[in-house]
Each structure stands twice: as C-alpha cells, then as structure tokens.
Amino acid sequence: MNIFRLAGDMTHLASVLVLLLKIHTIKSCAGISLKTQELFAIVFLTRYLDLFTNFISIYNTIMKLIFLGSSFSIVWYIRRHRVVRRSYDKDQDTFRHFFLMWPCLILAIFINEKFTLKEVMWTFSIYLEAIAILPQLVMLQRTRNIDNLTGQYIFLLGAYRAFYILNWIYRYFTEEHYVHWITWVAGVIQTLLYGDFFYYYFQSWKNNVKLELPA
C-alpha cells in the first residue's frame, strides 16, 4: 500500500461519510442523484463477489464491507426513509441509468483479462463505475445551485479517482509486471468526467463564492 492508494481510499471513504452525514443528520438528499447511488451499489455488489473467497487483508475486507453497506443504506434512505425521501428531487433525476449497464456488460464480456463469471462481473463493475457519476453530473447541471455538502461529496469522489491514477503510476514504476490496461483506461475516463466540475469547484473556492455551474 502506497500513500496515493491510501489517500484515494480515504477520500473515497470521506465522500461516503459526507453523504451519509448529509442524509442522516440533515435528513435531506436534495441534489443527490438516486440513479448514481443505485449504480454505485451495483458496482460494489458485482466487484466484491470475491469478498469471502479471496482474502487480501483485514483492511481490504473491512473497506469492502463499508462500501457495500454504505451504498445500499444510501439507496435505502433515499427510496424508503419517511423524511429523507421527500427531499429527493425526482423530477431533476431523470437519467435512464439502467441503460448504461448494457454497454458495460457487453464490453465486459468481450474485453476482460479472463473469461470467468467472477472476472467478467469484476470488469463490468470497473466499466460501470467509470460512468456511474453521469446521472449525478446531469442533475448538477440542471439544479445549478449546489449546497456545500453535495459539492464536497462530488469533490471527494473526484479526488479519490485522481489519487488512484497517481497510485497506478507509482505502482507501475515500483512493481514488476504491473500493467492493467482495463482499469487504467476506465479509471482515466472516469476521472476526466470530473474535470469540468473540478474547474468550477476551484473557481468558487478561489473567489470565495458559492459553487454554481453555468447553464
């Protein structure tokens, strides 16, 4: 484990905690896309199929359980919680997200490192994660006004991806035979999707004004 990987995991963890904090304490999910959260839940479910069969470390197992548990509880909160679900902007969250899964599945069947069920599902989760943020970004564009916690949530998610790229660069130079084209290409695409958001996030931070995306 290198410092970039740890920083990536910690910003990922922080993003989830920020979102749970918003939902649990403020009892609001305003500005949050349920579609993106459902895709994340599917991403973790299909990626961690080896949770009980492939032990890597206590750290890995605990983090996997946290990401699985948090993603499903966030979906539950938005869909089922008596108070929280009332703050969900359903009309702004119209992305046909399940259609994103088909190209990811087809791509995973044809482009993978090994043609086994577990490996294809893992590859599917990598492709799906790359584009899972799209419904959230579309929703941001529509609502434009972004509250602090939502802004921080998306910033932390983007930071997590950026740290993972640094982690791969580090591992490429420090480990032998460390070449993973599938994760790298999908990961870079995923990070680029945050580019626009990052730009406006830093602008608002620099000028000390409220974050607002252009129409």
Binding site: D9, H12, N54, M63, K114, Y164, Y178, T183
Partner: peptide, 10 residues
C-alpha cells in the same frame, strides 16, 4: 500480474 494482484485495490 496475477489475479490476486489485479484485485487488491478497492
């Protein structure tokens, strides 16, 4: 890398 190495990330 081996399969385990490939999936040691989250």
């Amino acid at each position: 890398g081996t399969e385990a190495e490939a999936h040691d990330e989250l």
